[in-house]
Design a protein around this nucleic acid. Structure first.
Lengths: 236, 236
DNA sequence: GAGTGGTCTAGACCACGCC
DNA sequence: GCGTGGTCTAGACCACTCG
């Protein structure tokens, strides 16, 4: 039940991804699309604007809209994508190993991250992501138990996000992320195939609901040689 | 000579940054803003939509628009900001040291990065960014000489971007970025205050003009302990 | 039911690129 | 001059929240 401009967005995006509209080639003009999709100019423009924001097309006044080279995917810190959604696009085999899963009283560090009062409870999940047979990423999740009353091993092996959105009906709004490089800990070495590296890439993630409630803190710890972030940016 | 909705965007943004609209508090409704700014609803909505995209406000259907906590700045890989613009917002003292500056024939690596033909020429600039007295970042810039005929030491010490935009009238459209962690090289150790780290954070940047011409490749090499990237992401 | 944001439409005029 | 995208307007209806 997408809105009209979202449908048009997906239709055009599919044509770009399938190569029906080649990279660098010109898209139909707005006037043509009005007829093609039976929509008003504003509706067509909303779809095109979305494509531009997401780095799929470039619009040039007086000339037209042109398809850009699609970003070959990597780890998109820029977006808000779950590991499961990512894994589905990857060719290599991925597995998720649940190492810890329990509901615990939030310690001081977690209370600070999630801005929780004393005696608040959180679900803690520690998971190892295995890619191509190697244990590469250590995910530590902390979820406010007021919003997520129950987690199971099966949910953690599949996708926490999917469970939150489809089963619990939570609406995820946005996330703040922070990437740093730190000294690896004993825990990193214990859970990951770490080889001889002494540093680790830490992606901290604060997830908010649509109503601006902070409900999840995640630390995603990546082996440095396997970390790669690809982004797209527009001027101003 | 900004458009109306950009002006409204800046006006509201200023109120949020000044704290006139506190984090978490409600903004005036669209209907009120129509009167306040003397604009149509659509124009007001364009401004609000921009604020939402950039992580300054959250809009909730049926309730209103609310100011978010402003991201304390760090190194924004997500945006397209020059070091000079960044430095102006920082409290610590910054300096730029130009180590190399010359027009050279592009070698194979650079030709591949910038998709240049043989015998093409590029301007190469190697700069060290000093923050709080320490040499932290090594910037290696390569610019297509067809678009940038002349670079001087003074320009490199100030801001290459500013020169391109104001003096040469080049219109920067977008950039593709890639962040990885690699083994540090001899060059890194030579130019930076590297202490005992053996890895370095590499931010590769491909800058395109508005007409989709790729004209600049930059490698920004950061000491791992000083690297920090902060991002904002919306679901879908 | 009143107030809010979300979608869609139709029409006008402007700025830019190109021949 | 024509076709393109960029801005602005006015009005309609829908979906959601809250009292």
């Amino acid at each position: 039940m997408d809105s009209k401009y979202i449908s048009i967005y997906h239709e055009i995006l599919a044509k770009i991804e399938d190569g029906e509209i080649a990279a660098g080639s010109k898209l139909p003009s707005e006037t043509e699309m009005i007829g093609e999709y039976g929509a008003s100019r504003d509706t067509v423009r909303k779809a095109l604007h979305l494509l531009e924001q997401n780095g799929y097309i470039q619009r040039i006044q007086g000339k037209g809209s042109f398809a850009l080279d699609i970003n070959k995917l990597s780890f998109p810190v820029s977006g808000l994508t779950s590991f499961k959604e990512l894994a589905q696009k990857m060719t290599e085999k991925c597995r998720t190993l649940v190492k810890e899963l329990e509901k615990i009283p939030a310690d001081e560090f977690i209370r600070e991250q999630l801005k929780l009062p004393e005696q608040a409870e959180v679900w803690k999940a520690v998971r190892v992501r295995q890619i191509g047979g190697k244990k590469i990423i250590l995910d530590k999740d902390f979820l406010d138990a007021r919003y997520v009353p129950k987690l199971t091993q099966a949910i953690c092996e599949d996708s926490i996000y999917e469970h939150l959105e489809t089963k619990l009906g939570l609406k995820i709004g946005f996330a703040q992320k922070e990437v740093t490089v730190q000294q690896a800990t004993q825990e990193d070495r214990k859970y990951l195939d770490f080889e001889n590296y002494n540093m680790i890439v830490v992606v901290k993630n604060y997830t908010y609901l649509e109503d601006m409630t902070l409900f999840q803190y995640t630390e995603s710890r990546h082996r440095p040689d396997k970390f790669k972030f690809v982004g797209f940016a527009r001027r101003n």
